[in-house]
Every structure is written in structure tokens, then in C-alpha cells.
Design a binder for these strands. Structure first.
Lengths: 129, 129
DNA sequence: GTATAACATTCGGCAACGCGTATATGATTA
DNA sequence: TAATCATATACGCGTTGCCGAATGTTATAC
């Protein structure tokens, strides 16, 4: 018998799913990344630029976020465009809503988010240089 | 000059606070504990009983949850009664709401919560044997 | 005072994490 | 083909997290 682990809708979420989602949020850098992606789709170079962190650090956290299914990638030739994944549980949905509303008020996140919004807007005109 | 680190209201929350809250949720056992405490106040012996884990394990996770300010204790002679702490940020508030609503539907959590509700009710009549 | 009960803390080991540095891969450009 | 750019992964290392077992602490019971 084949188990369709991809058909998210079919499976009732378990404790492991919850745990995984929260672990995705359990790091300040990843919180910053999720906050930036709340602005829209960004490529790794944008994230590196705004976060001011070494590229491998960002890439590793993105890998972690991919594993926990909190983000998804669009690969366009040699650019990787990341965005928030569509939530697959109530908790996930709630946390994404949290990123988009509750996170405002944390000063460092606010200013970064503004930069992300501007960058997303730029990308609409000129796609990643 | 004295810094009133205790007057929570005064300080605008930072990234570290966010991180701390999420780290509190980043473990399946702690998620289970928070889920149980959503039913009301419980003593350690109740938690040990319902979780079916060794007492030191529960105690250590409770210490962690205290450190992250997600729970608070009432010590009554030789019993320790734990309850969810009053949220001190939007994110915290949102996550507690999440515990009370979004967590329903995870089967293992549901059944444990029912046991917790019953236990809380028992305690109203007969306070911790 | 001794025993016991309810919790908390410590220690030792092991796995997971986060980071810096270096390197690999794959597409693009010269 | 060689060089370069964007991104990912590997390696080594210090840190943190979790667990079981043992021990501490405080209060009640005998």
C-alpha cells in the first residue's frame, strides 16, 4: 500500500507536526527570516543583504525552515526565491498570522520588515538584478 | 540608576522575548504540559500521573517553562501548583489562545486534556489528597 | 528524631544546534 | 573553456537540550 504523505489534507496532524512547527520558530535568526518573508517572496541574496549575516548561515536556516515545511522555494535558473509556505494546520496558520500581525512592535523586526517590503516592490520591476 | 526589569509592562518586548517564548514551545513534552495546564491549575503529581513520565523529567521541563515565563507556581506547603502565566506580549497571548483552541484536534492532546479537566474538577472538592 | 512524601537539582552522556571556514554544485558570462 | 555568480553542503567545534539515575530540600507524619 502506498502512503500519500504529500496529501497533507488527508492526515490528521499529530504532536510531531506541532513540535516541528514550533522548533522552526525557536531561533532568533529564523524568526527574523520568517518576518522578512511575511513581506513576500525574496531571494537568498536579499535575505543575506537585509540580515547582514554570512550567506552559509542564512542558507542553513533556510534548509531548516524547508525541513519543517515553513517555507518553500522557487528556483529560477541560479536564483532561489523563498516564500512562506501555505499553512497545513491550524497552529501553523495561527503562527503565520502571528508573524504578520503580532510581530509588529518589536523594533528590530519592524525596521527589517520595512526593508523587505521595499525589496519585494523593487523585485516586481527589476527581477533580482 | 535602578533598572526595573520586573515591571514587565514598561519594557517594549524585543526579539529575545519572542525567541524565549517559542523555545518554551519547542519540545513535545512541554507542549503536552502547556496543553494540560490550559485546563487549569495542576500540581506536579497530577502532571506526572497524566503524562506518565518520570518526576524529574516533568520537574525539569517545568523549570524550563518557568525560566521562559510561560508558567507560574503556587507553593502550598509541600505541593507545587502550576498554571499558565498571564501573557506579557501579543505573541505570548496569541500562543496561549492557540493552546486553548488550535491544539484541539490533535488526538493525543485531546485525550490528555480531558483527563486534566477532570482532575482540575476533582481538586475543587478534594485538594490534592 | 526518624521516616516519608512532594518536588527540585545535579551529574554524565549523547544527540541536536549554530557558526565559521572551506568547498561543492550548477547556471551564466566572458 | 575558463571564470564567476548564487546557493548549498561538509567539516570541526563549542554550546545547548534532553534524559536517566542519583541526590538534595523542605514539609508532614509517626
Amino acid at each position: 500500500m502506498i502512503s500519500f504523505t504529500h496529501s497533507v489534507k488527508a492526515r490528521t496532524p499529530g504532536l510531531e507536526d506541532l513540535d516541528s512547527v514550533f522548533k522552526g520558530f525557536a531561533d532568533p535568526t529564523r524568526i527574523r527570516i520568517l518576518n522578512l518573508l511575511a513581506a513576500g517572496e525574496l531571494c537568498v541574496c536579499d535575505l543575506v543583504d537585509i540580515l547582514g549575516l554570512p550567506q552559509p548561515a542564512v542558507s542553513r536556516h533556510l534548509a531548516y525552515l524547508r525541513k519543517t515545511k515553513l517555507v518553500r522555494v522557487n528556483r529560477d535558473s541560479n536564483f532561489a526565491h523563498y516564500r512562506l509556505a501555505d499553512p497545513n494546520s491550524d497552529v501553523h496558520r495561527n503562527l503565520i498570522a502571528c508573524v504578520k500581525s503580532c510581530f509588529t512592535g518589536i523594533r528590530s523586526l519592524d525596521s527589517e520588515r520595512r526593508r523587505a517590503v521595499a525589496r519585494v516592490k523593487d523585485r516586481e520591476k527589476e527581477p533580482c538584478r
